[in-house]
Design a protein around this nucleic acid. Structure first.
Lengths: 232, 232
DNA sequence: CTAATATTGTGTTGTTTTGACACATTTATG
DNA sequence: CATAAATGTGTCAAAACAACACAATATTAG
């Protein structure tokens, strides 16, 4: 048995971030064009190495802020990818986080300066290394969580309508939902507060604008809600 | 921006394993007495460093096998703990896995030789570093998953009775369930196959022994089942 | 000004699922 | 053979759900 840590191998550790956004129609990812070798110029997740004196969550925050200009966004650790040969240069672990942001909130300048783009999940290009696998697992996690917890609101503006929320869920799960049943289910959670206002940008009947009941959202976040129809 | 990896810090990376077992009454953890400094002699999770040419999952398997003598057990990556000061000797990341095993299957010799012990969750001693936090999060994950997926069977013998399964769920969630409703719910999943045999070690009416419908278990594992009563 | 069209809000209905509860059966024990 | 403890199964009312219909609102075309 080892007596101290002297003989153990030290490894490179990266942080990669999967950033989801929703434009009202489609679920999108914020991807960058990699700017150093190897795989320079290829599509990639935003990432960076863990700093010596920095907690993992802080590192994720730093990387997310660097690209989006945002603070205090929804971030969750996904999992760590550690296949020996996942990076051809040198073995590198990647601690992967996924974030949900309001697609209209990001800082255009930072995004431009990183040659980053919002790309629809359905038109995702080839990504470097194992980043596609990361995205796949993140999507599974998003689908999993959004079915049980009111996580979807993180992708919407402060004020939103029920039809918008429904479109979001339909985008996440790539299916159609019954308008009436969805509305009933969402309203029954008590998570929506009527703002009294209506959605101005509508060519037909203007939908009621709601905002999140933050108190209830936070105190009941870890409860199970059943937002999606159960398919057994 | 960095052009290669040369200037980035390399970190020590450990793997720690949370091993759950069930003795028919209580949920237990397999813990070891640490055999090197720092914190020598203190209670700890089983762990080790990641080998240079070893995938993370393989490392977890290796560590689990070293302690229990078992292969092919249920293992899942929990998350990575990376607080800068979590290890006083040197910054060490820990990729944490949790495992579910049949408590009667482990190799007594290996367990003894590691000064390991099955300890009830309710009598858990102080653990080194952030291992208590890891256990707490693993328990949350277990509770989460077991409410939605038929993960509990991993903790039981090949053949089991419905009352045994119920006791397991009651131990996981630390609550009492209605016998009749539980039975109805479990049987309605179609996951249980009647073996035709009955439980011999019973002082009263002998319960029917079931075994898992492996086919259905595997093909439907990622479906949602709702094993636990919903408390909103 | 009105009809047509698109979208939103709300109600109904029959079926299924759930939670609370009761009773009969099995088996070791005295 | 009566008792005690545990197991298997049944009932019933309330709640939740999926499927569906209709009325209200707003824009646009004529």
């Amino acid at each position: 048995m080892m007596k101290n840590y002297a003989h153990s191998t030290r490894l490179l550790v990266a942080i990669d971030c999967i950033i989801f956004g929703f434009d009202g129609e489609e679920l999108k990812l914020l991807l960058i064009k990699r700017r150093f070798e190897p795989e320079k110029g290829k599509w990639s997740l935003m990432g960076g190495f863990v700093n010596e004196e920095e907690d993992l969550e802080v590192g994720a925050e730093r990387i997310l802020h660097e690209l989006t200009g945002l603070h205090n966004i929804y971030v969750e650790q996904l999992q760590t990818f550690g296949k020996v040969d996942r990076d051809p240069v040198e073995r590198t672990l990647s601690v992967v986080f996924f974030a949900l942001i309001n697609i209209h909130n990001h800082d255009e300048e930072s995004v431009k300066s990183h040659s980053a783009c919002w790309i629809s999940l359905k038109q995702m290009p080839k990504l470097i290394f194992d980043h596609e696998k990361m995205v796949q697992i993140a999507l599974e996690r998003l689908r999993y969580k959004a079915a049980l917890h009111p996580i979807g609101f993180e992708l919407l503006p402060e004020q939103f309508t029920i039809p918008q929320l429904q479109k979001l869920y339909e985008a996440i799960y790539d299916l159609k939902l019954d308008r009436r049943n969805f509305s009933r289910k969402i309203l029954s959670t008590g998570l929506l507060l009527d703002t009294g206002e209506k959605n101005a940008n509508s060519a037909t009947k203007k939908a009621i604008l709601y905002r999140l009941n933050k108190e209830k959202y936070e105190s009941n976040f870890n409860n199970f809600w059943y937002f999606m129809p159960v398919t057994t």
